[in-house]
C-alpha cells in the first residue's frame, strides 16, 4: 500500500543554525489516525506548517499522494490537505458561521448556487446548523472549532491535520471535538487524520504514534510499541497513557494483559474476570 503522506529526511531551521527539525522521516497510510506527540518546542507545530507549505527553505522531501511539495504544487497539495489550528479565534475568518464555512468554498470558486447546500450539509454534520447566522463572539471555543472543522471538511480533503485543535478548549469542548472527529472518521473511513497533540490518551487510541523530541524523531509505531519505551518517553518529557501504565504495573506484578486490550472499558472487563 502506498502511503498517502511521506516525509523523508525533513530538516528545517528558523535562524540558519539550530534546526527545529532534524532529518525527520515517516509515512502515513491512507485512512489511518496518526498522533504526533512531543513537548512544547519539540518541532511538532513546525512540522505542521511545513506540511502545508507555510514556510520555505526546508531540506528533504514531503510527498502527498506521491506529489512532491514545491512552489509549483503548493495549491494542488493544499487542496487535499486541511488543517485546524489551536486558537479558535484566529482561524475564524467569516463574520458568521455560514460566511466562515463559505470562505474556503469561495476560494475554491464553488459556484454561488451550490454554496448554500454545501454549507448547510457540513454545518449540520458538525452540529452547527442552528448557528449559521451566529457571529463568532457569540460562540464557545468548542463551537468555533466545530465550525473550523466543518469549513475544512466542506473542501473534501484527503488529509486533515489537527494542530493541537483541542488544547485551548474546556473539557466539554474537547469532548465535542473528539466526538465530531470520531463521527467523521466513521462516515469517511478513507479520511486520514494527523493529530498533533499533548493528549497522551488520544495518542493511545491512534493507529500510529510519532514521537518528536528537540527536533528529532525518537520513536514511531503502534501505541503499544511506542509506549513500551518508558525511559525514552520520560527523557522526552512525555507521560504514559493510563491503560498502558496500568498494563505495565500489572506486568510488574506478574500479570500479562493480552495486547488486544486497548481501551479502559476492555480493561475493566478484564479486571472483573
Amino acid at each position: 500500500m502506498n502511503p498517502i503522506l511521506s516525509v523523508s529526511n525533513l530538516t528545517f531551521s528558523y535562524d540558519g543554525d539550530s534546526p527545529a527539525l532534524k532529518g525527520i522521516s515517516f509515512d502515513v497510510e491512507e485512512g489511518s489516525y496518526v498522533a504526533i506527540i512531543g513537548h512544547n518546542g519539540s518541532g511538532k507545530s513546525t512540522l505542521a506548517k511545513l506540511l502545508l507549505g507555510l514556510m520555505n527553505g526546508f531540506k528533504g522531501t514531503i510527498r502527498v499522494f506521491g506529489t512532491e511539495l514545491s512552489r509549483k504544487t503548493l495549491y494542488q497539495i493544499r487542496s487535499r490537505v486541511g488543517i485546524v489550528f489551536q486558537n479558535p479565534d484566529n482561524q475564524f475568518v467569516g463574520s458568521t458561521v455560514a460566511d466562515d464555512i463559505a470562505f474556503g468554498l469561495e476560494n475554491r470558486k464553488v459556484p454561488h448556487d451550490q454554496m448554500q447546500g454545501i454549507i448547510e450539509k457540513f454545518a449540520d454534520d458538525a452540529g452547527m446548523r442552528a448557528f449559521l447566522d451566529h457571529a463568532p463572539e457569540n460562540l464557545s471555543g468548542g463551537q468555533k472549532q466545530r465550525v473550523a472543522i466543518a469549513g475544512v471538511l466542506a473542501m473534501h480533503p484527503d488529509i486533515v491535520i489537527l494542530d493541537e485543535a483541542t488544547a485551548m478548549l474546556d473539557p466539554k469542548g474537547k469532548r465535542e471535538i473528539r466526538d465530531l472527529i470520531a463521527k467523521m472518521k466513521q462516515e469517511n473511513p478513507k479520511l486520514t487524520i494527523l493529530s498533533i497533540t499533548h493528549d497522551i490518551e488520544e495518542a493511545a487510541n491512534s493507529d500510529k504514534v510519532v514521537v518528536l523530541d528537540s527536533g528529532n524523531l525518537i520513536l514511531q509505531g503502534t501505541p503499544d510499541e511506542v509506549f513500551s519505551h518508558v525511559d525514552a518517553l520520560n527523557a522526552a518529557r512525555l507521560g504514559i497513557p493510563f491503560v498502558i501504565a496500568l498494563k505495565h504495573e500489572l506486568a510488574s506484578r506478574g500479570i500479562e494483559v493480552p495486547s488486544s486490550i486497548k481501551t479502559l472499558e476492555q480493561m475493566e472487563d478484564y479486571l472483573c474476570q
Binding site: K49, L52, L54, Y75, R78, S79, G82, I83, F85, N87, D89, N90, Q91, V93, A98, D99, A102, F103, G104, L105, E106, N107, R108, K109, V110, P111, H112, M115, I119, G151, V152, M155
Partner: peptide
Amino acid sequence: LRSEELANAMECRGYDPRAKRTRYRL
C-alpha cells in the same frame, strides 16, 4: 500574533488575493 495566525489559516484554506473568487453573499 493573531494576524499572523489568521494569515496562515487563510492561506491554508486556499485564499489567494490575486485569484478570482466566487461569492456566497450576493
